[in-house]
Design a protein around this nucleic acid. Sequence first.
DNA 1: CTAGATGTTAAGGT
DNA 2: CACCTTAACATCTA
Length: 262
Amino acid sequence: MPELPEVETFKRYLDGTSLHQRITGVEVRDAYVLKHVSARELTRRLKGRRFENSYRHGKHLFVRAGDELWLRLHFGMTGSLEYFKYDEVAPKTARVIFRFADNCRLAFDDQRKFGEIELIEDVGEFLQTRGLGPDALGIGLSQFKAIVGKHRGAVKAILLNQRLIAGIGNLYADEILFHARMHPATEAARLSDKDLRRLFRATRYVLDKAIALKTDFNRLPKSWLLTHRGKRGRCPRCGRALKSAIIGGRTAWFCTHCQKRI
DNA sequence: CTAGATGTTAAGGT
DNA sequence: CACCTTAACATCTA
């Protein structure tokens, strides 16, 4: 479930393993994930270059491979990055594998193939064309208030809308609302200044904490909703059964006792 | 066998 | 225009 914290974790992983080494080959095992570029073209453009640095915006990861040459990675539902030593075997669902001069490899793994790999020239232009909102961790309270307070609809739908704020997905949206003690269907326009501040703080807390724990599910606090979400889950705060509802087209899990509609 | 699952987007409706 | 819902994508699991 790669949302902002997972993608940030992938970014740090890539930065720690795969920068500054000459790319000697690109193996495309399934071209389905390639967007606007063929396997041959991708290989031709990257071979001999190096990944120099990376930049994350929302759920997108951009890796610079030269002037006006960026690799864009989106992880869809099941994407991830795996770095391998020369003698290790890449998993069956590795779709694209970048090979470096030292024979280590970086695999873009994606079982369900909703992920995307693309070459672009300009990150800013991409963000603009795609209409992505500011990164969820790149805005302050006032901007957050301006965005959330200015829109109608369920507060959860607004958190999920990548054109308004980029990076929050279904799971973390539920988590944020749980910490803000806010019902996901709450009409955003009804939120007071104080509510918006509480929501903003919850957003920062949840995303920062998840990143700090490298989004390791086993290490996320038991007091969080995430580990209790779904099937017969109980609220970690009051012990009551969690409820679900479809809000903004996605399944929301929440506690009707702890999260009141405003 | 069917429904639903973490993401995004296009298309159609209100 | 702002917002909502649905379907579609590929694949696995309950």
